[in-house]
Amino acid sequence: MRDGVAERKVPGGKFVRVRAYLTDDCSFTDLVVEGDFFAYPPDAIDGLAERVRGKALAESIKAIDEALEGVSLGGVDAKTIRSLVEEAFRKACGNGE
């Protein structure tokens, strides 16, 4: 099992931390997005873990993009969440998949 954490205080926005949990061969087992941001509907953030479970990075990023489409975010944007997921993944798995 591997894990990686990436965090950012968005300039003029909110604090976001992503925790990625992965198998030894680098597919996601869990993904936690936490911080003091706002999101409607909140279930879209809660549901990200389910969307990426069992997937490698590229597929996961695609699933995250789809999940966040139409979600109203405050203090963070979808691009930042995606980039933190990538960063957390690389901390756990380097560039390998």
Binding site: R17, V32, V33, E34, G35, D36, F37, A39, I45
Partner: peptide
Amino acid sequence: IGYFQSLSA
């Protein structure tokens, strides 16, 4: 705490 916050953090 906010809905998306980590309790321990």
